[in-house]
Design a protein around this nucleic acid. Sequence first.
DNA 1: CTGTTAGCGCGTTCAA
DNA 2: TTGAACGCGCTAACAG
Lengths: 336, 336
Amino acid sequence: MRKARPTIYDVARLAGVSTATVSRALNGTGQIAPATRAMIDDAVAQLGYHPNTAARSLVTRSTQTIALLLPDITNPFYAALVSGIQERALETGHTMLLCTTEGDPEREEQYLSLLRAKQVDGVLVDGLVLPPDRITRFVREGLPIVCLDRDIDSTLVPLVQVDNRLGARLATEHLLELGHERIGHIAGPPDLGISDERIEGYRDALRAAGIAVDPELIAVGSFTEEGGYEAARVLSDKWDLTALFAANDLSAIGALSALVQSGRRVPEEVSVVGFDDLRLSRFTNPPLTTVHQPAGEIARHAAELLLELASGRPVERMRYFLEPGLVVRSSTAPPS
Amino acid sequence: MRKARPTIYDVARLAGVSTATVSRALNGTGQIAPATRAMIDDAVAQLGYHPNTAARSLVTRSTQTIALLLPDITNPFYAALVSGIQERALETGHTMLLCTTEGDPEREEQYLSLLRAKQVDGVLVDGLVLPPDRITRFVREGLPIVCLDRDIDSTLVPLVQVDNRLGARLATEHLLELGHERIGHIAGPPDLGISDERIEGYRDALRAAGIAVDPELIAVGSFTEEGGYEAARVLSDKWDLTALFAANDLSAIGALSALVQSGRRVPEEVSVVGFDDLRLSRFTNPPLTTVHQPAGEIARHAAELLLELASGRPVERMRYFLEPGLVVRSSTAPPS
DNA sequence: CTGTTAGCGCGTTCAA
DNA sequence: TTGAACGCGCTAACAG
């Protein structure tokens, strides 16, 4: 049987003071006589007392909880974000709810609604496909939200992301500089803004090099290994293609696999570039050339902003654009 | 300005009934006249009312929240667990706190303490290194806990895991059957029970085949790509080694990378087997032979047990041992 | 079927 | 520096 937990009242009685005094002692509010404090500490220890946060939340209106809402935690990039957020959150005693949506807009809204009911202090969203106005509605109702990788309405909801277009351009330029001219692109899911931004960066680079953009060379992936694998299969039928830029590392890994399995050597016959710079990407065969995203920095900035918002402090800057950087490893080489 | 949220009292007034009736209507408790229910629904919709879960938790003593405590979410195996848990949790309106410990026992205990204060309905723990009695203490205090991959005290805390020893034996036997005799092992962190279990399975197989276990052939990894990479470097100095069994897929991937980079061909010169069967492992070069763990099943069982425990229902079975299975792909072959 | 009345455990006035 | 009293928003008896 679980015995009833001691309450602040039990502590007060044992220490011979009022609950108000105990509360103050526990929260460091107001002045407490050293002797009283000692009595209280004793009582707390003796009883094994721990404040009930539900009761506390009811009066303070803060749950010391934030939420992270994203499509899929099995994508290591998202997982990397978690660490940074967690770290920052823990500093202020915040705890983190993780909610995965599988890219389903209804589930996104359902979760947002649930999170509001739970009175979470705020939510970090990434990769949502829900229409902007369905999101800002929650903000207007008082639920602080910070966006990653998608500009909803940055006067209202802060935004943190890398410059995706620039990153994609860097990747493509790298391929161009090596001498490639027929460069395929494995795009992300069509309903995600970052997919478009990365396509645009790819186009920018090609155009700047005076190369016509051939829509045939763009295949739709899904940001997964499987998607990259399939897309690479489709694209590699076009034998004049000598390089591939995948919109994220997971698809690049899938592409690597497809290419090698169909007997094409990387990078000798086909070069591959990814996007994300997962920890994993240093260990592929061959090690993957990719565009680095500072996941830790993104996470910390976002968490910082959210906590700022949640505490009612004014947010000095609503948008953070971090810079991506090309990391050259061994999956790229001049065409043969 | 965030306007004050409507309370159950506002709804009651607008609908012209008492708060008790509103509460009943909202929770489906007791019988409500259709007409009254309609009035209430109207009022709720008109006000945009959402119950305050903190207040509800205070009286029901249930937060509809569970927690998952593990070392590192960037390990895709753990990430895969999350999906299964989430899915099961959402069915009953439960939400999931994610807490990562980085393998630090102090942080583990700190989190457990925080979670208890938060009145979570229960916690799922995996990969903890905290001594058993420090964990059972929380259980005795009324915090339901379910363990994954580590038997703390299975009369008190349910356990769900694959048979690690068997899995490791299967992997090693596969190598043995291919004709390998000098088989290295990349172990997991020394303070984790599953590391030992997998080492034992490896030893079992060798002994059964009449091969002496050479401690020199066991290197300590860390369940990460980096750890696998380093360990493989060390082991591959022993040139008579023709096969490697890594205690998880991430280290196997690191090993693959180290091997190929030092010019050894896989599987022609060295065979590699992993453990976990990550989604990713189908896409390595070469595709990884590994031991399958049913992550989804593990997750669902564990979540089920926890929810059972949390609701006070009796748990019929305290231990679930799931069966691992060998998945042969292309990273293993007979020695040359 | 519905209303009245108590709390759930805590922070926070306002006095003392 | 401390205590009494109130209320946060909701559910759960107990009457009716």
